[in-house]
């Protein structure tokens, strides 16, 4: 029985890892070898694809641009969501429940809906083709998500702690930074992770709000596939490098990730 269980898990993980292995495998092959035939490992092992990415500015700028707007977006989302989530968690005001739900419903609209108005708006504001434009656009779905997750974590902190702090003489900002934020540090971590992930993998807005100077890596990858023929090795290497930041961030919040998926309501 135990053997069956183990083998099920083994097969499952094998299937999960296979595409990733294949990507890694391809990234060390030349394009000719990839197109030439089937092989489980690179016969002519080469780092050429990686070298190209790290030396060609059109490639590595893609990563820099992506990381810039992703980090910007994460900072903006979390810092705006913190006070908002605190309000939802601690105060009752007119329409609070509806507003809270409406926030989440923002995530239900496909980003494509917003592309046209965003392009128009950002062009008018001279923001088009800047990392800030993409960072702000991604707030559309990251701020509501961050508010939802943080609200769950905050509601797990007893209100009496806030009151005790006021009674002790803390001012609100002092209390919030010194007492409250450390209490929901795990929540802030998980929230930052989700903002990072969603912004990192989002392509439609990122691609349409940039043209040359702020082109994100996801857009660079699609361009290479279409213009310069089949540079599959290069593409695979870019893919591998794109997985890495996410994997690093997951490593840091791995303990709290399940809580995060439950929106802090465990």
């Amino acid at each position: 029985m135990k053997g069956v269980k183990l083998s099920v898990v083994f097969v499952y993980i094998l299937f999960l890892m296979l595409p990733i292995y294949w990507l890694l495998n391809m990234s060390f092959k030349t394009t000719n070898e990839i197109l030439g035939g089937f092989s489980w490992y690179p016969k002519n092992f080469t780092l050429e694809s990686y070298i190209t990415i790290f030396t060609d500015p059109t490639w590595y700028n893609g990563y820099i641009n992506s990381l810039t707007y992703v980090v910007l977006n994460t900072i903006i989302s979390v810092s705006f969501a913190l006070p908002a989530a605190y309000a939802f968690s601690r105060y009752r005001f007119m329409g609070d429940k509806h507003l809270f739900f409406w926030l989440l419903s923002n995530r239900m609209a496909p980003p494509a809906v917003f592309v046209l108005p965003f392009v128009e708006l950002y062009s008018a504001m001279q923001l088009f083709d800047t990392p800030l434009a993409v960072a702000l656009a991604h707030c559309l779905f990251n701020v509501p998500l961050a508010v939802w997750i943080l609200e769950g974590f905050m509601s797990n902190v007893p209100r009496e702690i806030d009151e005790t702090a006021y009674i002790d003489g803390y001012s609100f900002p002092h209390f919030f930074v010194r007492i409250f934020m450390p209490l929901i540090a795990a929540g802030i971590g998980v929230t930052a992770f989700f903002c990072f992930m969603f912004s990192w993998v989002e392509m439609l807005l990122a691609k349409n709000l940039t043209s040359v100077s702020a082109k994100p890596i996801v857009a660079v990858m699609t361009r290479t596939a279409s213009t310069s023929g089949y540079e599959l090795g290069l593409l695979a290497a870019a893919g591998v490098l794109t997985i890495i930041p996410g994997a690093i961030v997951i490593w840091f919040v791995r303990k709290y990730i399940a809580k995060g998926f439950a929106l802090g309501r465990v």
């Binding site: 007893p158 009496e160 702690i161 009151e163 005790t164 702090a165 006021y166 009674i167 002790d168 003489g169 803390y170 001012s171 007492i179 450390p182 209490l183």
Partner: peptide, 21 residues
């Protein structure tokens, strides 16, 4: 007068302390 300017101390039924300190 806001709470923090009043000279009040309070102990709750639940054990309320700052968990991080």
């Amino acid at each position: 007068v806001p709470v923090r300017k009043r000279n009040v101390a309070m102990v709750y039924q639940q054990f309320i302390n700052y968990p991080g300190l």
